[in-house]
Each structure stands twice: as structure tokens, then as C-alpha cells.
Design a protein around this nucleic acid. Structure first.
Length: 422
DNA sequence: GTAGGGTTAG
């Protein structure tokens, strides 16, 4: 009795450490436990398998399976499901299939989640026919499908371009008493939107309203994304205000979707800034990607000072070094004709990438400053930074055009040398 | 355990 409860304690402790990604500590606790006579059980090892699959690798998870066998504990369906779901997450189809097969061979009967994971993995790997076969196997087995099985099917069919089949399956199941969940509605709305089937998407949205389920944050960001994708800006903004008036919950993700779409598709910075205010009021967070889209939008609209101010604002907010924003500002400065200013900023940057270089070189070439561009190209070659072929060519052509033939030849040979080294 | 993504050059 004492032993049983101490194993349970051990498991709670290991589970907490695994959840915090402290795998080494979890292992240490396991070793200490064994030394004190607390025997790990199948739950202990399954917890470790799950954690290793999540944070290390499937192979690391599998080695725990071997360790548990050596300790005289037989793996169960949960051990295998953890491995298969890990493989599914990483889209390792052959591993998923092997594990499923292995499970059957050693006589562990798969449960509905084994099937679900396998279906999901097949869909993610672009094998809808095979996934459909697994679904049929599930229906013919003595197991009953979980609501998630249906969702995985509908989602997989949509993602693989079989929106009609997804809709047919949905209607068919409904006739047989299937009650869709909010997840099902969201999957269908997204799938139909992406397939440009807006009428059908609207019908599902209406059904969702009539079902008694409440649309959630995912529903809204899906619908919003769809509105902006098809340039229905006013409708998108209407949906936003409708949500506000009805007091629906909306998360930062949804706001970011809306802001990004507004700026990228039509340069609607006014509306974007309004939403940014609203995010703050709601106590939600806007991520660095969305802030960077705003900075780029400001640059593209010619408001480089505004972009600079927004970058300063990001710094004050505690966002780290934002190379992409610098790249946007450099590009904006060049396009506005302030190449020297851009060059100064370029030189001050702590970290640069191929975009920084490509952008700067392109504009130097455009301004006829081929020798400066050539210098930058040389430092790219030295630093192993990739540059677009067209930009490389522009530098070479420019040197030729200006009559710097020997410089062009030297550069050409250095480009070839760099290519050979790779 | 299944649903909504992402930033910059050319």
C-alpha cells in the first residue's frame, strides 16, 4: 500500500517536471526514486515517452520504450499512441505507420486515438485516400469514432482539396445523428473560405448561429481572414464592431490577423492603429510580427519617420532587436532616395541578413554606385551570406558598364570560388 | 489528443 502511493507521488512529480520541460531533473527523480525503493510503473514511463517525443525526438521517446521493457514493464496502447502522435506532429509518416504496425504485431489493440493519429498523419502527408481507408477500418472495428475522428476527417479532406467530400461527409453524418462541435464548424468555415466557397461558408456560419454554439475567437479570426482575403474590408470591419457590441471574446491572434491583413492588403494604417489601441485596452498583446508589418506599411506609404517612431515604440515595449524592421526602413529610405542615410543605418546594424544586403546592393546599383555595391557583395561572399542571383548579376553588369573590367573579373572569380566552397 | 499564421529584398 505504501509502495503504491509512493509510485503515485513519483508520477505526479515526474509529470510536473516533464511539463516544465525539465527532463534531466525528471530522470534524476526517477533514479532517486528507484534507489529509495519506489518502483516506476507504466504511467511513469508513458509520461517520459510523451515528454521526450514533445521536446527531444521520437527516437528518444522510443528508447524509453526499450528502457521500460528492460525494467520488466510492458508498454500499453498509451505508450504507442504517444509515439504515434509525436511522429504525427513532426509529420513523420513512415514512423507513424511502423509504430502502428509494431503495436498490432505485439498484440496491443489500437484504440480510437491510435486511428485518429494515423489519419491525421496521413492527411498531413498528403495521402487522403489512405487516411480514408484508415477511417473505414475504424468504422468497421469494434471501436466507435470519437468526435475528433470526424473533425480530423473533415479537416484533412478540406486541407487536401476535397472540400466537397468534406461537406458530403458532414451532411451524411448529420443525417445519422452526428452533432457538430464548434471545432467542426470552424474547420468547415475555414476550408470553404479557402476554397472560395463563400456562400457555403456563410451557410455553415448561419448553422453555427442556430446550433446554440457560440462562435469563438478562432471562428472570428477565420472569418476575418476570409473577408480580407477577398478584399471585403468594410464587411470585415463590420464583423469586428459586431463582435464588440455583442461582447464576444476575441483574442490577440484575431486582432493581429486583422491588423496584418488591413496593412498588407490595402495599406489601411488608420484602421490598423485603431485596432492596436483596442488591443491595449483589452489587455491583449500584439506580437512582433504584426508590429513589423505596421512598420513596413508605414515605410511603403512613405512615412519613414513614423516607421522609425514605431520601431522606437517597440523598443520601449521591450521587444528585442528587430532586424526585419531595420530591413524595411532601409528599403523605405532607399526608395525615397535617401541612400546615404540608408547606408548609415546599414552600417550601424548589429546583425544583417541576405535581405539587408540584397536590398542595399540593389538600390546602390540602381543609383549607379556599383563599386559600393561590389564591396558589399564581397563581404557577403566572405560571410557566407546568400544574395539573389539577379542582384549579383546587376553588380557585375554595372561594373562592366562603367568600364571597371578587371574589378568585375575579380568579383566574378570570387563568386565562383564561393560557390565551389559550398 | 481534432480548428485560426504570421514580418522584410528582388
Amino acid at each position: 500500500m505504501v509502495c503504491w502511493s509512493s509510485t503515485k507521488l513519483l508520477n505526479i512529480c515526474i509529470a510536473a517536471l516533464c511539463k516544465a520541460q525539465k527532463l534531466e531533473k525528471a530522470e534524476a527523480v526517477l533514479i532517486d526514486g528507484i534507489r529509495l525503493g519506489v518502483l516506476p510503473d507504466v504511467v511513469t514511463y508513458n509520461t517520459l515517452i510523451h515528454a521526450y517525443c514533445c521536446f527531444v525526438s521520437i527516437d528518444a521517446g522510443y528508447s524509453i520504450l526499450n528502457r521500460m521493457r528492460e525494467a520488466g514493464i510492458n508498454p500499453n496502447v498509451i505508450s504507442y499512441n504517444s509515439l504515434i502522435s509525436g511522429a504525427t506532429r513532426k509529420c513523420l509518416l513512415s514512423k507513424s505507420l511502423d509504430l502502428f504496425q509494431e503495436m498490432l504485431q505485439i498484440g496491443i489493440p489500437p484504440d480510437v486515438w491510435s486511428y485518429n493519429n494515423l489519419m491525421h498523419c496521413l492527411f498531413k502527408s498528403g495521402k487522403p485516400d489512405e487516411a480514408n481507408q484508415v477511417f473505414k477500418d475504424l468504422l468497421h472495428s469494434n471501436l466507435s469514432p470519437h468526435p475528433a475522428s470526424i473533425n480530423i476527417m473533415i479537416n484533412g479532406l478540406c486541407k487536401n482539396g476535397y472540400t466537397d467530400n468534406a461537406l458530403m461527409l458532414y451532411r451524411n453524418l448529420q443525417r445519422h445523428g452526428f452533432v457538430p462541435h464548434i471545432v467542426t464548424y470552424n474547420i468547415l468555415i475555414d476550408g470553404l473560405c479557402k476554397a472560395r466557397r463563400l456562400g457555403a461558408a456563410r451557410r455553415i456560419l448561419k448553422e453555427l448561429g442556430e446550433s446554440g454554439h457560440k462562435p469563438n475567437a478562432i471562428t472570428y479570426s477565420t472569418v476575418l481572414k476570409c473577408c480580407f482575403r477577398y478584399r471585403q474590408f468594410e464587411q470585415g470591419l463590420d464583423i469586428l464592431s459586431e463582435m464588440r457590441s455583442k461582447g464576444y471574446t476575441f483574442d490577440g491572434f484575431g486582432y493581429c490577423t486583422a491588423i496584418g491583413a488591413l496593412v498588407k492588403t490595402e495599406g489601411r494604417l488608420d484602421a490598423a492603429f485603431e485596432l492596436l489601441d483596442e488591443i491595449e485596452k483589452e489587455g491583449l498583446e500584439c506580437d512582433k510580427y504584426t508590429h513589423t508589418i505596421i512598420i513596413d506599411g508605414l515605410c511603403k506609404s512613405g512615412n519613414i519617420e513614423g516607421a522609425q517612431r514605431h520601431l522606437n515604440f517597440m523598443n520601449r515595449m521591450g521587444f528585442g532587436y528587430n532586424m526585419v524592421a531595420f530591413n524595411c526602413i532601409i528599403d523605405g529610405l532607399c526608395k525615397a532616395g535617401y541612400i546615404d542615410h540608408a547606408m548609415k543605418l546599414f552600417k550601424s546594424m548589429e546583425i544583417k541578413d541576405s535581405v539587408t544586403y540584397t536590398s542595399m546592393m540593389y538600390h546602390l546599383c540602381k543609383a549607379g554606385r556599383f563599386r559600393s555595391a561590389s564591396k558589399l557583395l564581397l563581404s557577403c561572399l566572405k560571410g557566407g551570406i546568400d544574395v539573389l542571383k539577379s542582384t549579383r548579376q546587376a553588380v557585375l553588369d554595372g561594373l562592366h558598364y562603367k568600364g571597371f573590367i578587371s574589378e568585375a573579373r575579380k568579383l566574378q572569380s570570387k563568386i565562383q570560388l564561393a560557390r565551389l566552397k559550398r
